[in-house]
Computed example of a mutant assay.
Amino acid sequence: MTQSRLSAIQAGRFAALPLRNLGREYPNSLAHFAHNDADMRPPRELHPIFWGSYDWHSCVHGWWLLTRCLRRHPEMAGAAEARALYPRFFTIAAGIGEADYFSAPGRGTWQRPYGWGWLLALSAELAQWDDPQAAEWRDVLKPLETVILDQFPSYLAKLTYPIRVGTHFNTAFGLLLALHFARVIDKPAMVTLIEQVARRYYGQDVDYPGHYEPNGDDFLSGGLVSALLMSRIMQPPEFAAWFGHYLPGYHNGGAGPYQPAIVADRNDAKGVHLDGLNLSRAWCLRGIAATLSAGHSAHGVLMGLADSHEAASLPFLESGEYGGEHWLATFAALAIEGLED
């Protein structure tokens, strides 16, 4: 896939947001499964690494973003400050503490699949980073990585139907992140499992009703993220045939159902999700177009839509509102360069 790369200026801009937030404990949207009074503890004790950035999963992908930016541009603005955070948070004891939280009874569904996928994506990013200490920091995550990998097959085995919503529970998004991890880390059995499951969930889809999107707090497109997943498991000719039946509105260069979402109030922590939707759609549209190739009749339309979606929300990452600032830059990075190298 050919996509743009983060520039050093963009990397410095995006990294500045997790730099401000990874060590910010409050306000905190604490989704917590408690067993008794003793479990009622502050975020920094419940989650020894991922206690900042408003909530657990945002903290995880904030670390993914910081790692991606440092890996791309070790000379970026704020690089020394950013790199100095890792030994403070990524300790062996903290990694065990994160795994212990997930392993406790009753927490088998916690952060599934969004947080699971982002933890695996962070692990993959650390595995690709040539920093001398990156392997040590990934080792810190391996206890939690192992817990998630052990649970993924049984989760998919019992998930009779995919979850197509445009928020954290979306199945295709979690599978995209897990597939990226499995390919980077070279786990062929996991790649095969995800490919089989994706075909079972989405392989027979036709006439996806994209005109019903978005819901008012979506940050993912249920239609496009599923299509991006299929583009990652199919060869281009097979995907082009599938896509023609799935979103036929783009046949012969048609305009299709997707236009940039309008964000009415960036002070609203749910409403600002629509900025994330625009950015994640840009990522999906570019990835789909790249698989279709430049000669496909939908290619130019999809690329133009990606540009307009990105332009609608990229200027607003630094809104001054924590509800958006703690997470949106991650999706800006996806819009610009995707997951893959």
Score class of each variant (00 low, 15 high):
H273K: 06
D139K: 15
S154F: 09
Y202I: 06
E325Y: 05
L279G: 01
A189D: 12
L126P: 07
P132V: 03
F169K: 02
G320K: 00
D207C: 13
Y161D: 00
A80E: 06
S308G: 04
Q196G: 04
P236D: 09
A121P: 09
Q133N: 13
A8H: 08
W283L: 08
H299L: 03
Y250A: 15
R266V: 13
A282W: 02
H299D: 03
R44Y: 10
L302D: 02
H32E: 09
E75T: 10
L122Y: 11
S58V: 03
H251Q: 10
H73W: 07
E98F: 08
P143S: 14
S226I: 07
G295Q: 13
Y161E: 06
A298V: 00
A306W: 05
W116D: 11
F14V: 02
L285V: 10
A311W: 00
G203N: 14
A182Y: 03
N215W: 06
H180K: 03
Y155Q: 15
S4L: 12
L339M: 06
E45S: 15
G295T: 10
L328H: 15
P248Q: 09
T171G: 07
D217L: 03
L70G: 09
W116S: 14
Q133T: 14
L30W: 01
A227K: 09
A84G: 12
N21L: 03
A189W: 09
N215Y: 05
G117T: 06
P113I: 05
